[in-house]
Design a protein around this nucleic acid. Sequence first.
DNA 1: GTTAATCCTTGATCTCAATCAAGAAATTGC
DNA 2: GCAATTTCTTGATTGAGATCAAGGATTAAC
Lengths: 197, 197
Amino acid sequence: MTSYKPRIKQLFQELVSISDSDWNYFSERLQFKQFGKKEKITQAGRVEDNLYFLADGVVRFVIQNDNKESTTDFSFTGQFFCSYSSFITRQPSIFEIRPVTKTASCCYITWNDLQQVYANTSCGEEIGRMAAEQQFIRKSAREVSLLTIHPKDRYLQLLDEQPQWVHQIPLKHLASYMGITPETLSRIRSSIMNSDS
Amino acid sequence: MTSYKPRIKQLFQELVSISDSDWNYFSERLQFKQFGKKEKITQAGRVEDNLYFLADGVVRFVIQNDNKESTTDFSFTGQFFCSYSSFITRQPSIFEIRPVTKTASCCYITWNDLQQVYANTSCGEEIGRMAAEQQFIRKSAREVSLLTIHPKDRYLQLLDEQPQWVHQIPLKHLASYMGITPETLSRIRSSIMNSDS
DNA sequence: GTTAATCCTTGATCTCAATCAAGAAATTGC
DNA sequence: GCAATTTCTTGATTGAGATCAAGGATTAAC
């Protein structure tokens, strides 16, 4: 139940050297919750109040539009996630976040507690900046992919860069993430099977 | 030639209260350069070394792919810009940045100087974090737009949210930004003209 | 002011992915 | 383990946007 904390500390230390007192200040504010498959970790329309660390599982970010849903992103074991724009701006989230796996084990810190960390630790702001920068880089790369790469090549790129996605995520959610229909992704997949056999 | 500095200071103060000494430390590291229409502000393949503030003009971010170019973003007078992923990661930029307007008047701070600011001012990290967060929010909103909104509605949204774009940017670059061809955008535009006359 | 270059529009055709549909395969629930 | 649900595949058709093409409008160059 506290075994994920060393992993978080390690993630931080990849960014910046963190003192023991800073770490303690932060880690005391961490809480834990496990979500079932049908639960919503974050609800659309509510202000995101928590920054999560995914100790185990896969989650997806979903936008509902006139009873169609789009999956815009995923997070995996060992990553931080939340409806980040909402968390930052304190505006209602346009996403909901839901488990892909049977359960999602999360620890989290609230927005209020995180502001305390920013204010009262020496490296909090720096970690916050670097985390925001990393989020930006991901979204920026995705923008390029969506604008300049054809669906088939996008799937090959995904296979290459994120093979675990293809195995852990139902095809229909992957298709949505890629901006195509499940049928089209299914055909792309079978055309690849036939061409490299 | 120094008249843009108060505007920058004001931008910072919208984020956080900045002391005079911190401001001086930053502003004495600002340099100035004006770019002509055919010049490249940032070259693809090179590590972005400067963070720019656009004192006057419009610039666009371009990706070249086998002699096709895609415009992925714009920046306008009064905004910060650079090939941000490259600037952060110190990896070669995949974009080039070029003026849309006849000239682009820019002041800038180098990466080295900015690290000094992070290290030697009290609010540098906080401004850096907030700037990174803002960049993330923009890219995140764009991801949603590209995935969930049809081209025609995307154009209407652009008209509504960024009317100055439509007037200052050639249609072909706007089309590229929207992920469609100039012909299609032209037809969208005329279909709107006919329907709301 | 005239030429050249660039940009925008409009039309005709084509292509790729969406949609509609139905059955197969896999998972989930009791 | 069996039924029910969900997910995936495959086929036929449709449709939105790309491409190809050419003429007109604007802007830039000198």
